[in-house]
Design a protein around this nucleic acid. Structure first.
Length: 458
RNA sequence: GAGGGUGUAGCUCAGCUGGUUAGAGCAUCAGAUUGUGGUUCUGAGGGUCGUGGGUUCGAACCCCAUCAUCCUCCCCA
């Protein structure tokens, strides 16, 4: 029987060329995080299931990858295991069967970390984290079961200065990567006030889920959905007005103020949005953020400002999102630590950059020099020169056998190695190296030391 | 969880209303060319047509099942 190796659904291998691109993205973002004074943190791939359950809403729980406990086949534990499986089949959770699960995002593990270490941390604590997360979603375009997030969060301060910093991080990072984006912002307070105005703070989720679809399905479909959810006429009328708000940022805020300014949550939201836009206004008067009143964000724990980043002119969902949460560590028994954070979706960012050809061509280079193999004795001399070059931080390699020249040339070409070097009997005798620039075809023979100088990083 | 598309050589794909021995380009290997490539030419190797059933004189093609993958909805990065 022929074995067919395969990968779990929604996961990928990353070949060298792909990984170079991913690392380029990661390094760029890491650089921005570091410049804003964030410090690195890593947490385990798996968490206790209890740590994750109930943090991402009902749908979220279903998407958590659970890990089967070891030792279930132990005869002494059969009865307990059977009982545990029975509970699982009923849709409940049982630590007898699964007590661990794969990380679903980076925010909750961070909150768990802060709750465990709050006594040792200096607040405000700024951390960044770049690691894979796993979701049992059905894969499709821009959606994977294993993907990387890069998060920057600040906990321990309610200061809006951090909203300004995190928004700037988005702007800086995407400018460095060369991706044109719109960074959208909204405030949960406005949505809460809207729900209140519609007669039910409890129906906040119903409302936000519907209006979030506005730019996708259009106003009428949204209103139909709200009708189906049996909102009263007065409520849908208010929502229609809210969704109809247009104009530039300040015009939108003014209109919303008339609508929801009377509610405490609404007034707070409007005030904070005004402050942030004013704070980040450029010298020429333009504003880098865009207010999007329909922006809702699914994650339940956001309470204040919320962000989302979309690539312009790209068929891709959001490539980043985040917001403020008042009391994330409260879920772990340590109340009173507010926080705010943003997340970058690395895989989607890479997809967009690939699609639009935004990766620098220079990423394709591995070795800078290939030494031709011209025979046993010559190769030994080439080896010596090569080691001297490596000692000077230049990546280089030698062809493994004295193959035909066209093979050695082709190898260099395919690997995007720009220079090939010849150390043959003539060169050995004169202590020189002959080298050729493959892009120009130009070749020259120079003393060995001159060769080393020419190809060392300046 | 619901719905749709696609599975043919290492890769990208042709293959007509079912008809004899399943093709092309790229890649690989060899030669033209025993120390200067990328062009060209010649030749070679490589496929249980995703898998398992069924219909038929005959199936890559039709039917059923199954697996994989891609896409849409839900939700999200």
């Amino acid at each position: 029987m022929k074995i067919r190796p395969s990968l779990p659904q929604g996961t990928r291998d990353f070949a060298p060329q792909t990984l170079r691109k991913r690392q380029f993205v990661l390094q760029t973002i890491r650089g921005v995080f570091e410049r804003y004074g964030f410090q690195p943190l890593e947490t385990p791939a798996m968490e206790n299931l209890d740590t994750l359950l109930g943090k991402y809403g009902e749908e979220g729980d279903k998407l958590i990858f659970r890990i089967l406990n070891n030792g279930l086949d132990n005869p002494a534990k059969h009865e307990a295991a059977m009982e545990g499986f029975r509970q699982v089949l009923e849709g409940r959770n049982s630590t007898t069967v699964t007590e661990r699960a794969l990380r679903y995002d980076l925010t909750i593990p961070f909150a768990r970390f802060v709750a465990m270490n709050h006594a040792q941390l200096n607040f405000p604590f700024k951390r960044y984290q770049m690691q894979p997360v796993w979701r049992a979603d059905r894969p499709q375009k821009g959606r994977y079961r294993e993907f990387w997030q890069c998060d920057a969060d600040v906990v321990g301060s309610p200061s809006l200065l951090y909203e300004a910093e995190l928004a700037s991080i988005y702007l800086d990072a995407f400018r460095s990567l060369g991706i044109p984006v719109s960074v959208r912002v909204n405030h949960r307070g406005l949505l809460a006030a809207l729900a209140e105005a519609c007669g039910g703070a409890g129906r906040l989720t119903d409302i936000t889920v519907s209006i979030d679809k506005l730019d996708k399905v259009g106003l009428e479909k949204v209103m139909e959905e709200l009708d189906r959810k049996e909102f009263p006429e007065t409520a849908t009328a208010k929502i229609r007005t809210y969704l109809g708000v247009a104009g530039d940022n300040s015009e939108r805020l003014q209109a919303v103020e008339g609508l929801l300014g009377g509610y405490e949550a609404g007034a707070k939201g409007i005030g904070e949005l005004r402050w942030l836009l004013d704070f980040l206004r450029r010298d020429d008067g333009t504003e880098p953020l865009e207010i999007d009143l329909t922006l809702a964000r699914g994650l339940d724990y956001y309470t204040g400002m919320i962000f989302e980043v979309k690539a312009l002119d790209a068929q891709m969902g959001s490539i980043g999102g985040g917001g403020r949460y008042d009391d994330l560590t409260g879920l772990f028994g340590v109340p009173g630590i507010p926080g705010v954070g943003v997340s970058f979706g690395i895989d989607r960012i890479c997809d967009v950059m690939e699609e639009k050809g935004l990766f620098p061509a220079s990423l394709e280079t591995g070795s800078r020099v290939l030494f031709f193999h011209l025979g046993q004795a010559e190769a030994r001399h080439a080896w010596t020169v090569m080691q001297q070059l490596r000692a000077r931080d230049t990546a280089c390699e030698i062809y493994p056998e004295a193959a035909r020249f066209d093979k050695q040339f082709k190898y260099a070409e395919r690997r995007h190695i720009p220079i090939v070097a010849f150390v043959g009997s003539e060169e050995i005798a004169a202590d020189t190296v002959r080298y050729k620039d493959l892009s120009t075809g130009e070749q020259r023979t120079v003393p060995r030391t001159a060769f080393l100088d020419a190809l060392s990083p300046s």
